[in-house]
Simulated assay, not measured.
Amino acid sequence: MSSMFQEILAFILTTSGWVLVSSTLPMDYWEVSSNDGSVITTSTFWSNLWKTCVTDSTGVSNCRDFPSMLALNAYIQACRGLMITAVCLGFFASIFALVGMKCTKIGGSDKNKAHITCFSGISFILCGLCSLSGCSLYAHRITTEFFDPLFFDQKYELGAALFIGWGGSILCILGGSIFCFSIADTFTKSHSQAKYIYKGTATHSHISSYPRGQAKSVNQRPPPDCSNSSRMQHFDKNVYV
Rank of each mutant, 00 (worst) to 15 (best):
14 T>N: 04
14 T>E: 03
15 T>F: 08
16 S>R: 06
17 G>Y: 01
17 G>V: 05
18 W>L: 09
18 W>M: 08
18 W>H: 06
19 V>G: 09
19 V>P: 02
20 L>V: 00
21 V>W: 03
22 S>C: 04
23 S>G: 01
23 S>W: 07
23 S>A: 10
23 S>K: 07
25 L>I: 11
25 L>E: 08
26 P>M: 07
27 M>T: 04
28 D>H: 10
28 D>G: 04
29 Y>N: 09
29 Y>F: 13
29 Y>L: 05
31 E>R: 14
31 E>F: 12
31 E>T: 04
31 E>P: 05
32 V>L: 06
32 V>G: 04
32 V>N: 09
32 V>M: 11
33 S>P: 00
33 S>N: 12
34 S>H: 12
34 S>M: 14
34 S>G: 03
35 N>V: 13
36 D>K: 11
37 G>D: 06
37 G>C: 00
38 S>M: 15
38 S>I: 03
38 S>V: 03
39 V>T: 15
40 I>H: 05
41 T>F: 06
42 T>N: 06
44 T>A: 10
44 T>S: 11
45 F>R: 10
46 W>C: 03
46 W>H: 13
46 W>G: 03
50 W>L: 04
50 W>Y: 09
50 W>G: 00
51 K>F: 11
52 T>N: 14
53 C>S: 09
54 V>T: 13
54 V>C: 00
55 T>R: 13
56 D>G: 05
58 T>N: 09
62 N>Q: 11
62 N>L: 09
62 N>E: 07
63 C>H: 03
64 R>S: 11
64 R>V: 12
65 D>E: 14
66 F>P: 01
67 P>I: 02
68 S>R: 10
68 S>G: 04
70 L>R: 04
71 A>L: 07
71 A>M: 04
71 A>W: 04
72 L>E: 13
73 N>S: 05
73 N>D: 15
74 A>V: 14
74 A>Q: 10
76 I>A: 11
76 I>D: 08
76 I>Q: 06
76 I>W: 12
77 Q>K: 15
77 Q>C: 06
79 C>T: 15
79 C>V: 14
80 R>A: 08
81 G>F: 14
81 G>P: 00
81 G>A: 12
82 L>C: 03
82 L>H: 02
83 M>T: 01
83 M>L: 11
85 T>Y: 08
86 A>C: 06
86 A>T: 04
87 V>A: 15
87 V>K: 13
87 V>C: 02
87 V>D: 06
89 L>A: 10
91 F>V: 15
92 F>C: 09
92 F>K: 05
93 A>M: 10
93 A>N: 05
93 A>I: 10
93 A>S: 15
94 S>H: 14
94 S>W: 12
94 S>F: 15
96 F>H: 01
97 A>V: 09
97 A>E: 11
98 L>K: 06
98 L>E: 08
98 L>Q: 13
99 V>W: 13
100 G>W: 02
100 G>N: 02
101 M>T: 15
102 K>I: 12
102 K>N: 09
103 C>P: 00
104 T>C: 13
106 I>L: 13
107 G>K: 02
107 G>P: 01
